[in-house]
C-alpha cells in the first residue's frame, strides 16, 4: 500500500491528463509521462455497464501504484446519475488527492459533494478536509454561476471548463480563434481569480492538428489560465514549454523576492529593483514565477 502525502490545495497544475479508470493498461504507468496531475475518469470514458468494474480497478490502482509527485484526481459521475455517491466512497477510501465534480452548476452542487466527501472521510478514517475538490463547468448555467461555485468550499482548488458539452449547449462548434468560448473562458477566469482559485482550460481533441493546439495553448497562457486538460501524453511537452517563464522573467523574479526579503527584514516596505517600484503586491507573482521555473528545471535556488 502506498501512503500518499497530504494533497496541497494550491500547487502547480499546468497539465491534467485524462485516463480511463477502467483500463488497467493506461492507469498502471500514467505517472511516467510527467504531467502535473492525472485525471482518472469514472464518467464519460467508462461505459454505463462498467461503472462498478471501474471502481474496483480504481481502488486497487490508488492503493498499489506509486504515482510519486503526480497528483491523482478522479472525475466522478454527475449528480443526476445513480453512481456519484459510490464514486465518492471509493475515491476517499482509496486516498485520491481530489475529486472533479462533473457538470457543476451551482454552489449547492459543490456543497452536496462536499457533504458526501466528509461522510466518507469519517467512514474510512481519513483526515477531515484531506480530499480536495475541483468543479467542471459544462453548461451556460455553470458559467453564469462560476463565482459562487469558485467560492463554495475551502476544499475547492479550481474550476475547469468542459468544451464539448459547453459548445453543444451554445449551439456552436470549435473555432480556431477560440471565439466560440471566449466569453465563457473570460467569465470563468474572472470568477476564479476573484475567488482566489485556479482555472483550467478544456481539452484539445484533434491530435493531428499541432498548429491549432499550439495556438490554443498560447491563448490559454495569454488569458491567464493555470493549466490545461489533456487527452494524450504527446500534448504534455508543449503545454509545459508554453507555460514556462522566460529566462528574463526568472531573473527578475529572483531579484524581486531576494530584495523584498532583505528590505522587509530592514523595515522597508517599498523599494526599487532595476528602476521599477516594488512592494508586497509583487511578491506572490514573483514567487509563483520561481515555483514554475523550478518545476520547469530553470531555477535551482532556495527562495521557494
Amino acid at each position: 500500500m502506498i501512503p500518499r502525502p497530504k494533497p496541497e490545495r494550491f500547487r502547480l497544475r499546468r497539465t491534467m491528463m485524462f485516463m480511463n479508470a477502467q483500463k488497467p493498461g493506461l492507469i498502471k504507468d500514467a505517472y511516467i509521462y510527467g504531467c502535473d496531475s492525472i485525471m482518472l475518469d469514472l464518467e464519460d470514458a467508462v461505459a454505463e455497464n462498467q461503472k462498478d468494474a471501474a471502481r474496483f480497478s480504481l481502488y486497487h490502482a490508488l492503493k498499489t501504484i506509486d504515482y510519486g509527485d503526480t497528483e491523482v484526481i478522479v472525475r466522478i459521475n454527475g449528480l443526476d446519475t445513480p453512481h456519484w455517491q459510490e464514486d465518492i466512497r471509493v475515491c476517499v477510501a482509496g486516498g485520491a488527492d481530489g475529486i472533479r465534480i462533473a457538470k457543476c452548476e451551482s454552489a449547492n452542487d459543490v456543497h452536496t459533494v462536499e457533504a458526501a466527501v466528509e461522510k466518507a472521510e469519517e467512514e474510512f478514517g481519513v483526515e477531515k478536509g484531506r480530499t480536495l475538490l475541483m468543479a467542471a463547468l459544462e453548461s451556460p448555467k455553470g458559467i453564469l454561476n462560476a463565482y459562487e461555485i469558485c467560492a463554495a468550499s475551502d476544499r475547492l482548488f479550481g474550476v475547469a471548463i468542459s468544451g464539448g458539452d459547453f459548445r453543444k449547449c451554445m449551439q456552436t462548434v470549435f473555432q480556431p480563434d477560440g471565439v466560440d468560448m471566449l466569453a465563457a473562458r473570460g467569465q470563468m477566469l474572472v470568477a476564479a481569480r476573484a475567488a482566489g482559485v485556479q482555472c483550467f482550460d478544456t481539452v484539445f481533441t484533434d491530435l493531428d492538428n499541432e498548429e491549432g493546439f499550439r495556438a490554443e495553448v498560447l491563448q490559454n497562457k495569454a488569458m491567464g489560465f493555470d493549466g490545461k486538460s489533456l487527452i494524450n501524453p504527446k500534448q504534455i511537452r508543449l503545454v509545459h514549454q508554453v507555460f514556462a517563464p522566460t529566462e528574463k522573467e526568472v531573473i527578475q523574479a529572483e531579484k524581486i523576492v531576494r530584495a523584498y526579503r532583505e528590505q522587509s527584514a530592514a523595515g522597508v516596505g517599498v523599494f526599487t529593483v532595476d528602476g521599477k517600484m516594488i512592494d508586497i503586491a509583487f511578491i506572490p507573482g514573483a514567487e509563483r514565477t520561481l515555483k514554475l521555473a523550478r518545476a520547469c528545471g530553470m531555477y535551482e535556488g532556495d527562495l521557494v
Partner: peptide, 17 residues
C-alpha cells in the same frame, strides 16, 4: 499480463456482480 492489483479488482468485481 495483468498486474496483481488488476487481478484482484477483476475477481472482486465478478464475485460482487
Amino acid at each position: 499480463g495483468a498486474l496483481d492489483c488488476t487481478l484482484k479488482a477483476r475477481v472482486e468485481c465478478a464475485v460482487f456482480r
